[in-house]
Amino acid sequence: MPEAFRIDGMSQYGLPDRSAFAVPGVGRGVLDVFSYRYLLRLLVRKGILTRYHGSVLGWAWSYVKPAAQFLIYYLVMGVFLNLNRGIDAFPVYLFSGIVVVNLFNEAFGNATKSIVNNKALVKKIYLPRELFPIADVFIAFVHFLPQLSILIVVCLVVGWVPTVLHLAGALLAMLIVLLLATGLGMLFGSVNVSFRDSQNLVELILLFATWTSPVLYSFTMVRDKVPTWLFDLYMANPLTAAVELFHSAFWYPTIAGPAERPENLWGLAGLALAISIVTLLVGQFVFRRLEGRFAQDL
């Protein structure tokens, strides 16, 4: 009974009625982002407005870069290495995979650097720090939209008739990639505060990402060459599932002849979603463990 203490005069303020008090600097992690929606929106807006600031081409770069990347892969893989013989409509196959990996690379890469990049704020003002990697993932998604729209236009031109199942698959693929990138970004981003090795390691991972999922070649080539356990591991990569979901949504419906598709793609997608969610939980856990040191170690 706090009142009793006050009458006794034991404490000037009446002891422990502390329900009205908050402990500064303790948030609810990712969940806090929902109550900071407006700030998140402004941070994303800032990232988008300042991205191509001072460049003449501006947003055109969001089209030029993937186009150049596509051209190189198409020439090297398709024309010089003749991979397009085995894969119908190889350009569409290639592009629908590339955009998925681009989304992942951009989101994961930026989220990893987000805490260090927002040093000035992290050191001076308390905010749920999860806002920074999450804002970067949103920004990456906005920059993915031009690429997605090119893909859709190209597919429609070559006779793609979208179905609900295609669209659901594509949405699921994006969800998998975004969750995975957020989780990994929080994990490597929080380590990056103390050890900048982290962002170099991530660059290495991103280098591998394009090659360890069936973007530039078909999954059958892996299946025919490696032992079963390794192939299972390969297919369990959430990025592989996301890329194959995009192939099934955009490329497969547009080709004339038959083509081999992974068995039980929805099952793989479910596994990928589960792995992404676990990654997000692990990322959040590590982030919260290290967060207390951000302001003093930066």
Partner: peptide, 22 residues
């Protein structure tokens, strides 16, 4: 910084009531 929540104490308690601005 301990009061604003930017830093956390290694021992003891910091409590605030109401909105804090810095």
């Amino acid at each position: 910084k301990l009061v604003s929540g930017v830093l956390r104490p290694d021992a003891g308690t910091v409590l605030t009531r109401g909105r804090v601005a810095g």
